[in-house]
Design a protein around this nucleic acid. Sequence first.
DNA 1: TTATATATTTAACAGTGTTAATATAATGAA
DNA 2: TTCATTATATTAACACTGTTAAATATATAA
Lengths: 197, 197
Amino acid sequence: MGNKEIQEQRIKSYFIEATKEILKGEGLKSLSVRNIAERAGYSYATLYNYFKDVKDLIFECVVDFHEECEEFVKTETKKSQSGPGKIKAIAKAYVKYFIQYPGIFELFFLEKTTELANKQPTIKLIYSFLDKLSEDEWEYCIKTKIVSAADASIMKDTVHYAIIGMLLFYINRREPGTYKEFFEKIETQLNYILKVK
Amino acid sequence: MGNKEIQEQRIKSYFIEATKEILKGEGLKSLSVRNIAERAGYSYATLYNYFKDVKDLIFECVVDFHEECEEFVKTETKKSQSGPGKIKAIAKAYVKYFIQYPGIFELFFLEKTTELANKQPTIKLIYSFLDKLSEDEWEYCIKTKIVSAADASIMKDTVHYAIIGMLLFYINRREPGTYKEFFEKIETQLNYILKVK
DNA sequence: TTATATATTTAACAGTGTTAATATAATGAA
DNA sequence: TTCATTATATTAACACTGTTAAATATATAA
């Protein structure tokens, strides 16, 4: 019967919600099993009845954040009209999401996950995410001959790599020193890579 | 008298060498105070007579690795003649160094260091390092009108951000799956950003 | 040699993730 | 309802982590 599974899923969600709150707030560094369990209203060992280990729990959050980010980017860029401008808008919204939640950036890109072989699809989801968000726009640019398919393939990667690099420096190394400077640099970089303006 | 200081520096170096060995081998994850001390031939508490804390010790390693990387890049690119080709060669050597020692990449870019206000110069050293390695070549390109000063400033950043992004994906997320693919991508990206070939 | 100063180590504390044993709650049958 | 069984939750413990205070060993000076 499904009642057991519904209840089980419900308790799992308490742990997941607690973990997501901590990740969005204090970040990965202040995440601990006892911390999560306290917020979820259970003892720390109870967590292991519902998750293999804490990594398992954390990776369930990844999927949720992923969906949240996708929705954020879509609503943020809804009014942009197709073309390189929209690709820029998508990239900027993507950046904004991680600036809002640096803990999620940490989780997505900085945390060691190589030992989680079974979670490989989730990892793939992360690094192909920006591509997925902007693939329609790239196709549009190719079809309308704004850019060649070969160039598009390279530019798509450049945008992604450069953005992650900038986020890494800004979030982890405070460079540039202010958000204003950072976002201007994002703008400059996107303009250069996408050859706009 | 300087004898005391020489001896003190000598013992410090034992800890530093031990830490460097672990970082180059097993990496940051298997670095611990007891681990370091054992390899240095001292008890774990002795470390605190020579370093404020373990972060202090680790940051002394950063300076050493920095010098080692600089030398590696210089010998690797000695025969390249000035111009965009040499900038490419420098970037590729820079990448090779971190591929050889992923633990050092972790240490330089992934480790949280925001709470170390006094070490700010060291942090600045890290993120301005590639710029420093290639600044002469950029000046050359500007003087010989290969590129404008304005473009050079942007391209310099793009190269750096994109390379760090690619290293992050490859080292931390195993994307692309093979070194061959990874290095081909480095080549492709550099060619696009630097407008060569 | 003895007294003092210095250097090193051991013991302890407050954390971490995880597991085994125990206690509690829910469920079934008599 | 009462008892036995099962499922779930909690406490205790283990092996780690970085760090500090007290105890010990070593070197220096009188």
